[in-house]
Design a protein around this nucleic acid. Structure first.
Length: 420
DNA sequence: TCTGGGGTCCTAGGACCC
DNA sequence: TCTGGGGTCCTAGGACCC
């Protein structure tokens, strides 16, 4: 048996924890650059606001209706998330942290000694009491059914936030009520195709012939159908698997035509990616750089391109990555175009310390470089930092806008909440 | 004026091998 | 006219997730 513990409107709820005056008010959180809505409270939903709505389009009406908006504050969200995950670790023997706001719990063992519905409420109340965050709990024999249960727990207030789908009858009842596009693994395209063959709810999907699904669609959807029937196909993954790629990309605060500024931006992203790569204790053999113009501006000449730079020896040295990023940029940059986004991608990973010996690059040098990077990373965790590379730029004219950000209540002494 | 960021998995097709 | 069979590896693109 699995439980899915899922925070309600996670980012919006985080903002409310330290602003109780916002309870019952519409709250939305915006993406980087205050671009579009990425999280919204129930009250904001009932004003007709949708996920991904561009902020500039809804801003005026929304504010008039008493809504409040925040720029995203990832430092705050990450900290609240880790507090919630710590609590869940105490409540269940095995958990899988699935995303910043969700975790699957393995309930085997627990299900034989306590009532599962009661256990769900215990999780919900403990998290509410210790962090102030509202969550829903869905319980089912497979992960996909736990997701279904969580859908029910959010959708129907009479469940008080917990749905237990242990029984076949309850599964059947809820699956029939659930639109097929709400199923975990069914996105926009599959939704359209399924509708075309007359499948509109989750129950119908579960009843389809598996061979037919494999032939007409693919093996992944067949797996989803089996999970909906109660057959475990997706296991709990306790250890986060090592990453296969690292991406750092940003939309600029304004359109950029200057190669120097683009170089600055990708150098900055490369340096950030290098830190992530070293945190994973990995090295990479490939760095790709990409840029694109604003696809929404139909009047502009469009250009998007990606260029990959291989390394002879795998590396996680910031200087190598920055150099490669600039090299790549010089290959794809075109004069007189208005770029609005750039990014870099690292791939082809190797464990740190596993590399072919190189005649021209003696071992001692490598150790020295490694120590240097380690030292920089260490300094940057203290308030002596940050140490950055000049290539990353100083003014960062291209960097994003976040005009409505809340304080970092839990991670910065200066932002600590004051009580008068 | 203003439209996010970071991931994974699967498949088809091409290049290449014997 | 008629041009094998079986395999692997890599890449790009599509679909999905949060």
């Amino acid at each position: 048996m699995f439980a899915l513990v899922d925070c309600n409107s996670f980012y919006a709820s985080c903002e409310r924890v330290f602003r109780p005056d916002l309870e019952k008010r519409p709250v939305v959180v915006l993406s980087n650059n205050d671009g579009c809505v990425v999280a919204l409270s129930k009250e904001a939903k009932s004003l007709g606001i949708k996920m991904c709505d561009p902020w500039f389009k809804i801003k005026k009406d929304y504010k008039q209706q008493g809504g409040i908006a925040f720029s995203s504050n990832y430092e705050l969200y990450a900290d609240i998330s880790s507090r919630i995950m710590d609590i869940l670790e105490q409540l269940a023997p095995r958990i899988e942290i699935y995303s910043i706001d969700e975790a699957f719990l393995d309930l085997s063992g627990i299900d034989s000694c306590v009532n599962l519905d009661a256990f769900g409420h215990q999780c919900l109340m403990t998290i509410k009491k210790w962090t102030g965050m509202p969550v829903s709990v869905g319980i089912g024999p497979t992960k996909t059914l736990a997701k279904v249960a969580s859908y029910g727990a959010k959708k129907y207030p009479q469940t008080k936030g917990v749905v237990d789908l242990s029984s076949k009858e309850r599964q059947k009842k809820l699956l029939k009520l659930m639109p097929v596009e709400e199923v975990w693994g069914v996105g926009r395209k599959l939704h359209q195709h399924l509708n075309k063959i007359g499948v509109t709810n989750a129950y119908q999907l579960a009843q389809l012939d598996l061979n037919y699904i494999r032939k007409r669609f693919n093996v992944v959807l067949a797996k989803t159908a089996r999970e909906l029937r109660g057959e475990v196909c997706i296991d709990l993954e306790e250890q986060p698997s090592t990453k296969k790629q690292i991406v750092v990309s940003r939309t600029f605060s304004r359109r950029v035509t200057d190669l120097n500024l683009l170089n600055e931006a990708v150098s900055d992203y490369a340096a950030r990616a290098a830190v992530k790569l070293r945190r994973e204790k990995q090295t990479c053999k490939l760095l790709s750089v990409f840029i694109r113009t604003n696809p929404f501006r139909k009047q502009d000449t469009q250009h998007r391109e990606i260029f990959s730079v291989p390394f002879i020896l795998p590396t996680n040295d910031s200087r190598d990555l920055i150099k490669a990023a600039r090299e790549g940029m010089s290959q794809i940059f075109r004069k007189d175009l208005q770029y609005n986004k750039a990014g870099i991608m690292l791939s082809d990973f190797y464990d740190e310390g596993v590399y072919q010996l190189d005649l021209f690059n003696p071992q001692e040098r490598k150790e020295l470089d490694k120590n240097l990077m380690g030292l920089i990373d260490k300094v940057n965790t203290t308030n002596l930092g940050p140490i950055t590379f000049l290539a990353q730029g100083i003014k960062k004219e291209w960097s994003m806008k976040r005009e409505m950000q809340s304080p970092r209540y839990t991670t910065n002494w200066n932002d600590l909440l004051k009580v008068n």
